[in-house]
């Protein structure tokens, strides 16, 4: 994953060095511009067994601001927003590694530094009893749920700090 660069960002934003779960560091630039969920759509992506993106739909590209070529082969944390608590993703991975479905509200970071909220379901793809990868299907969250999760994640972040 490359560092985010000011020329990709639509308005001057906050710049931080973010450390991912595996220790990898990357420069993130984020703004307060929200992109609203495209009504009636689903945002879909799937990965290989190692979590690298192998496919996504048009809504995924439109919402993240990346082209398909930029996304294929990348891990999903390319979308990780610094406002998200680590515990949410820990729970996500624990759940899907057990073969179960994970549901949750996620604030995602766009290539242009903006953000969008989704209600995501993440599942393992199982074929003939064998796990071959993971998929996420994201749908439009209600404003009420978004407000609740802004407060909740703020609290969780404060506890993690």
């Amino acid at each position: 994953m490359k560092d985010m660069i000011p020329s990709d960002v639509s308005k001057s934003g906050t710049t931080i060095r973010h450390k991912y779960y595996n220790g990898f560091e990357r420069t993130l630039i984020f703004t307060d511009i929200e992109t609203s969920f495209p009504e009636g759509n689903l945002i879909v992506s799937r990965t290989d067994i190692d979590g690298n993106i192998i496919g996504c739909n048009k809504a995924f590209c439109d919402m993240s601001g990346f082209t398909k070529e930029e996304l294929i082969g990348q891990p999903h944390c390319i979308l990780r927003h610094p406002d998200m608590p680590a515990a949410a993703f820990k729970d996500l991975w624990n759940t899907v590694e057990q073969g179960k479905h994970w549901h949750g509200y996620v604030k995602n970071l766009r290539k242009d530094g903006g953000y969008y909220w989704v209600y995501a379901t993440v599942i393992p793809n199982v074929r003939e009893g064998k796990r071959i990868g993971f998929s996420s299907i994201r749908r439009q969250p209600s404003r009420v749920k978004i407000q609740e999760h802004i407060a909740l994640y703020k609290k969780m972040k404060a506890q993690e700090a």
Binding site: V44, H101, T121, I123, N125, S135
Partner: peptide, 11 residues
Amino acid sequence: FMIDLMDTLVE
């Protein structure tokens, strides 16, 4: 894959 997708919508 379509069945996987439907499965996420059912729950």
